[in-house]
């Protein structure tokens, strides 16, 4: 049973007079517990694909469904609820809230959902511990290295126990060694806890051990 399904999805961007076809008919199915890398050159449509998968953008045509439910027809609030409950995001630029500590950043997604602060804090610190940042809970992002920041972001994505974690070039701003350790962490979480990952990269070296690789070129899946 697939948790994410693309059926004939296209996405056009209008740039003044011209129209850029970022995706030209994508079919894709992601099953529970999968660990998928989307590989493609710059401008091939990786970010667009992940944005559509994450309900933060709508397709021009075709259908994106999450757990069997078409998400493009939903209202803004319904999509927000899906993003909060079913999806975890990891960004290339980490996107931590600068004025919050690691712990508060991780607590954020749960706090958006609501609940007892004490429970939320416990859950968040457990996740930070899991990504190896037990000693950095009270640090602000500007006191952390790039790799550490991305670990905080991973903990933040994990903390809501989402169906799917999306990561758009999570390692592009990191040196190779740190990048590899981030991919390893994601893989470990996938294997140990069955978290489903869909991430993009243009770095061939990082995906040698990844079982399923989706290659995208000029808005089409080529393999």
């Amino acid at each position: 049973m697939s948790i994410l399904e693309f059926k004939g999805v296209t996405k056009d961007y209008r740039l003044g007079e011209t129209t850029v076809q970022a995706l030209r008919g994508v079919d894709l199915s992601v099953g529970k517990g999968e660990f998928i890398a989307v590989l493609g050159a710059s401008g091939s449509g990786k970010t667009t694909l992940l944005n559509l998968a994450g309900a933060i953008d709508d397709p021009t045509s075709g259908e994106v469904s999450m757990n069997g439910r078409n998400i493009s027809g939903l209202t803004d609030n319904e999509k927000a609820e899906i993003r909060n409950s079913a999806i975890g995001y990891i960004f290339q630029t980490f996107n931590l809230v600068p004025v919050l500590t690691s712990l508060e950043n991780v607590m954020l997604s749960l706090q958006i959902r609501g609940g007892r602060t004490a429970d939320i804090r416990n859950e968040a610190s457990r996740r930070l511990d899991e990504v190896g940042l037990a000693d950095f809970m009270l640090h602000r992002p500007d006191k952390l290295s790039g790799g550490q920041r991305q670990r905080v972001a991973i903990a933040r994505a994990l903390v809501t126990r989402p169906t799917l974690i999306l990561a758009d070039e999570p390692t592009a701003n990191l040196d190779h060694q740190t990048a590899q350790s981030i991919i390893d962490l994601m893989k470990e979480l996938n294997e140990k806890e069955g978290v489903t990952f869909l991430f993009s990269t243009h770095d061939q070296r990082l995906i040698n051990e990844v079982k399923r690789v989706v290659r995208i070129d000029d808005g089409k899946i080529v393999q």
């Binding site: 803004d76 927000a80 899906i82 993003r83 909060n84 960004f91 996107n95 809230v97 600068p98 958006i112």
Partner: peptide, 13 residues
């Protein structure tokens, strides 16, 4: 960008 991030995390308008 922070607003975009919070919205992606599920914060409503």
């Amino acid at each position: 960008r922070e607003i975009g991030t919070l919205r992606a995390l599920g914060l409503k308008r």
